[in-house]
């Protein structure tokens, strides 16, 4: 990989002179992304429900009724209280309420069957919620999941955040032999910014035998078959995208008394390049 940080000084300028000097004095050259041909974009510019030509709703507590395999506490709905496009943003709202036997509601949408692609650059600009027990995610699953069940189908977690850690996000790959708690994961922490007060661009660039993880103009991880402790399942099938805001579950635990509801996940855009 030819690695080169594009516009590093410009973006670091926001964070202050000190960072500016540091990043400029470093002599490394990185390229965060190489794929620039836009093939899909949802700018969320039309108020109302998300574009049904692109997005499906996942409703409820998951196929097993077990909180989508993670003991998540929320019931996903397609109600505008939980998901809508407004003011140029997709807004997913987690609400504390009794609904269909669950204590929380929220939303999860996918592009399954509507937009699936093998390889490319997938990114979203988002502002995340905060508070213990909130679990926002932007991720992908192999489109063959109904034939080759998880984790054989593969999973690319572009961005996950634990609400109790407002400065830290992580990206991961799940596959056979490296899933759940043994997924190949790396976290990234902001030094002078938060996930819940600032918008950031979270993305992956995925190609043959590699997935690069980047945030804004920082490339913070590359995973290749050498890193995988099992079969590399990312060279064969197209993947579809998912956006959701979970409450509770195995990732960050349950909300506590300091967690404020409702909480919002704001998505400015989703873009895919080849």
């Amino acid at each position: 990989m030819n690695i080169y940080i594009k516009n590093s000084c410009k973006s670091f300028f926001l964070f202050g002179t000190f960072s500016l000097l540091l990043s400029c004095s470093a002599d490394e050259k990185q390229t965060v992304t190489t794929l620039d041909k836009l093939v899909l974009q949802d700018e969320f510019s039309v108020d109302g429900a998300p574009d049904s030509a692109l997005w499906n709703y996942d409703i409820g507590k998951g196929p097993g009724g077990d909180g989508w395999g993670n003991n998540e506490l929320q019931y996903y709905t397609d109600r505008p209280e939980n998901i809508k496009v407004e003011n140029g943003m997709l807004k997913i709202t987690a609400i504390q309420e009794l609904y269909m036997g669950s204590g929380y509601t929220s939303a999860r949408i996918t592009t399954k069957g509507k937009f699936e692609q093998k390889y490319g650059r997938f990114e979203a600009r988002m502002k995340l919620p905060s508070g213990k027990g909130l679990w926002p995610a932007f991720w992908m699953l192999g489109s063959n999941i109904d034939i080759n069940s998880w984790p054989q189908c593969g999973e690319i977690d572009i961005m996950e955040n634990k609400g109790s850690q407002p400065l830290t996000v992580s990206g991961a790959l799940h596959g056979p032999g490296y899933s759940g708690g043994t997924a190949i994961t790396k976290s990234y922490s902001f030094t002078n910014s938060r996930v819940d007060t600032d918008f950031h661009i979270y993305g992956v660039e995925w190609g043959p035998n590699y997935v690069n993880f980047y945030i804004d103009s920082v490339l913070y991880n590359q995973i290749t078959p050498e890193d995988a402790t099992g079969e590399w399942v990312f060279n064969s099938n197209p993947f579809y995208m998912l956006l959701n805001l979970a409450v509770g579950g195995n990732f960050d635990g349950a909300p506590n008394s300091n967690t404020v509801f409702p909480q919002e996940m704001l998505i400015d855009y989703v873009r895919v390049y080849q």
Partner: peptide
């Protein structure tokens, strides 16, 4: 200081 790591206030 101007810190980027403080949330909006409730």
């Amino acid at each position: 200081e101007k810190l980027g790591t403080i949330s909006q206030g409730q």
